[in-house]
Amino acid sequence: MSEKKPKKVFIDGPITPEFVAKSIASHSTKKDIGAHSIFLGQVRNDLIGDKAVAAIEYTAYPEMADLKFHEIREAAFAAYPLTCLHIYHSLGTVLAGEISLFVFTSAIHRAEAIKACEFIVERIKHEIPVWGKEILEDGSAVWKVNTV
């Protein structure tokens, strides 16, 4: 059993800069933290043929995703001495240039925060049942394929 309770990961629509800023601010009371590492995934305006991606529509298998996010959290806390860990992922429509993934790790020293953040992002990309449908500028759509 873990002392860390399951947390809400999915956010409807984009993750706003204000949300990220508030998350940072809320850690000012935790004065044993010496380092934060933040990963922000942004929707890119890739060219598909000759049309640019205007947005991504994210869907998920939410129950399985929650289970996998929990496993990844547990693995991260087991592998790295983290003080704090937050993961947020968008569902629904996120426009090109907006943020769809926010991973935030905090530790006493920087090495652990940085390594843990990368570990978590890689596992999310490979293990979380989320799918992105790329909506192109002419309104047509293609399913996103992640780079390995």
């Binding site: 298998y61 992922h89 990309k125 293990e127 049942p129 989320v130 799918w131 399913w143 394929v145 992640n146």
Partner: peptide
């Protein structure tokens, strides 16, 4: 039983 195509989150 869920049929899961390659994940493309993030």
């Amino acid at each position: 039983v869920a049929l899961l195509p390659p994940f493309s989150g993030g």
